[in-house]
Design a protein around this nucleic acid. Structure first.
Lengths: 210, 210
DNA sequence: TTCTTTCCTGACCATATGGTCAGACATGGA
DNA sequence: TCCATGTCTGACCATATGGTCAGGAAAGAA
């Protein structure tokens, strides 16, 4: 599982192993929560001895912190689609597309994030108060500008943002429920497209942008 | 904290203590997750010795199961507003109101439910496959009838339901994030009303019902 | 080769946790 | 009053878990 076909350089070893561990940790934290996850489980999933995890990450909390922050980065990057958009149809439409894609490709990350926030954000509270708050204020201003320009109906930008987060992340966080209601099968390509279209249609019409 | 001002009758004792324990358990499970919650923590919050919890609930999992099922009941009851409605404006409008109210009054319950589903629903999988699935199919039929009657636009009923769940529950599950973005203060009465109105306005217009 | 640095890991430890149990205590019916 | 039943709890136990550490292996510089 983790046999190295070719010998790795010193610098590569660290990067490679951290990647493997972080990937395993993301999955385990998502499935079991911080409290339910054990270093042994993560080690097994990574195919490494437990002591080796502690060589790269001093404590379980350090490892968890890294996982959450990495997710936050991905999540913020997708938000760039918001800028440089001429109006809500393009800006919000692209944002929904991007966030739905993340829900599909990184469901575990989304779950860890949700779990962290639900438990009071003990680890990333500072991020919420700085980066996230700043980003939110910025986007609110953008939406308000669109409203002032008559490009969409005068809805509360803040609650619109919450709605976008809630709706898109729901497909990751509650993926298991959705799968169960889909007869136990994961959504197909076609069904994912239908989901995206439904969300975009309802919200864009809901804010009077189409 | 738990001093009984008046002596309780035998039958009352059990009911009363179970209520206290379930209430404490809901809060602790919501804050720490199943894995992070400890019987000792729940006992302290309930003001009872740990051994007493085990007298009423054999195992931690039994206690957790009861908490999740109780939430499910509340959650289903709110869904009754859906029926007997002449059209989407009344039916979905009332459903949003009811679910937003639950998010406000029972945020812990909502979190426990979310956590359970996120971890693959190990405890209530059967509920998802029976009760929830049946309920969902029923509501899809109602929405489809409204569409056929020309009372709303032809959106995918299933994804509309997901959107309703996601948006309303977001205010409970991500309450901490919302509070942080609100300057660290919980939403006021006025802000809750604004939230409700925003959700209702966008969704009802989004499905072409107004 | 020699030496330094980094990487690796089996064995170990202190602690926390879910759960048990014997026996005390209270209640209420006969 | 006596007894059966239900309630309560301190003390205890087996186990699991996060974390440590000494010492060995490999890599690369000199």
């Amino acid at each position: 599982m983790t046999e190295a076909p070719r010998p790795l350089r010193r610098t590569e070893i660290r990067r490679e192993n951290e990647k493997i561990i972080l990937s395993a940790a993301e999955k385990v934290f998502a499935e079991a929560g911080f409290g339910g996850a054990t270093m042994q489980l993560i080690a097994d999933m990574a195919g490494l001895p437990k002591a080796n995890l502690h060589y790269y990450f001093a404590t379980k909390e350090d490892l968890y912190r890294r996982v959450v922050r990495d997710i936050f980065e991905i999540w913020l990057k997708a938000a760039e689609t918001f800028d440089n958009a001429p109006g809500p149809v393009e800006g919000i439409g692209a944002y929904i597309d991007a966030k739905m894609e993340i829900s599909r490709r990184h469901p575990d990350g989304s779950k860890v994030w949700a779990s962290e926030v639900m438990h009071g954000a003990p680890v990333i509270q500072d991020y919420l108060e700085t980066t996230l708050r700043d980003w939110t204020e910025g986007r609110i201003a953008v939406i308000q500008r669109w409203i002032d320009a008559g490009l969409m109906a005068p809805v509360d930008p803040r609650h619109l943002l919450y709605m976008l987060w809630a709706t898109t992340q729901h497909y990751a966080d509650f993926g298991h429920q959705i799968e169960t209601l889909n007869g136990g099968r994961p959504l197909s390509d076609r069904q994912w497209k239908a989901a995206k279209d439904s969300v975009k249609t309802i919200i864009l019409r809901g804010i009077g942008a189409v």
